[in-house]
Amino acid sequence: MPDVTKTPAASDTVLTSDETVAANVPAVPATGKPRSLWSDAWQQLRRNPLFVISALLIVLLLVMAIVPTLFTSVDPRSGDLTNHFMSKPEWGHVFSPEWFGYDKQGRSIYARVIYGARASISVGVLVTLAVTILGGLIGMLAGYYGGWIDSVLSRFTDIFFGIPFFLGAMVILTSFTDRELWVVAGSMAFLGWTQIARVMRGSVITTKQSDYVTAARALGAGTGRILFRHILPNAIAPVIVVATIALGGYIAAEATLSYLGLGLADPTISWGIDISDAKDALRDAPHVMFFPAGMLCLTVLAFIMLGDAVRDALDPKLR
């Protein structure tokens, strides 16, 4: 680990793992501008090479997803069987349709890889948003109110937690004949919120016991103020970390479901579908599988790295 992570500025205590050292360097107000913990975390993030690499990758992927025409002018759905059946990549022809070669229907793999980003990123982002809102809300209520509300919500969460993710998703998705993007995203979110709920609940319970929450109650603050002004901003950090890492996981899960033929279906372009299509000719034309699979790995890796970097910045004590 680079030494940077050992001297966090974003923590409440000022420095390092060693308590006495932390006490040795008091935060000195004589210098500097207001520094919120968020801005401290941002300062820390910016210097983390892990973050810089993953952020650049993610920005690139986002641009691909939003305006794929920037990268290629070829229609990824148009096949030309006569000329290009499973031809090998042309390494010299950068950014041209034949760069990564053609698949068995004579479609440009390069164009399909670019266009495939949209489905993957959309599903990942949609599921993460839904899961964070749903799981976050349930976890927050369970953690804040405790007592029987917590008992009921926690048991409810446990029941969902017990459903195997892929088995559950397959069962739900087979009952849909027309599997559009939102159907896939919806069924994944329906099964995936429990992790966030558990993290949120634990984080809220810890934060709830802080003196500043007691102080707010002593001032006569209402539940809304306590929850959204005091507890949420302090409890959200681990949720952000888990959600970022999970985003990569959801993209992988979407590809898996699509590969199995239970996720997205033609004419939607998805890396999972392309991987599935390539599997029959893996020996003769490995490049047909290599590019969508490589892209998928890279995307998942980017989000996991981002999550790690965010964790370092938000909660240095965690490691």
Binding site: V4, A9, D18
Partner: peptide, 11 residues
């Protein structure tokens, strides 16, 4: 001394 990001803390 401790080498920290804020500089060298002479303990």
């Amino acid at each position: 001394e401790f080498h920290t990001r804020e500089g060298v803390a002479k303990a």
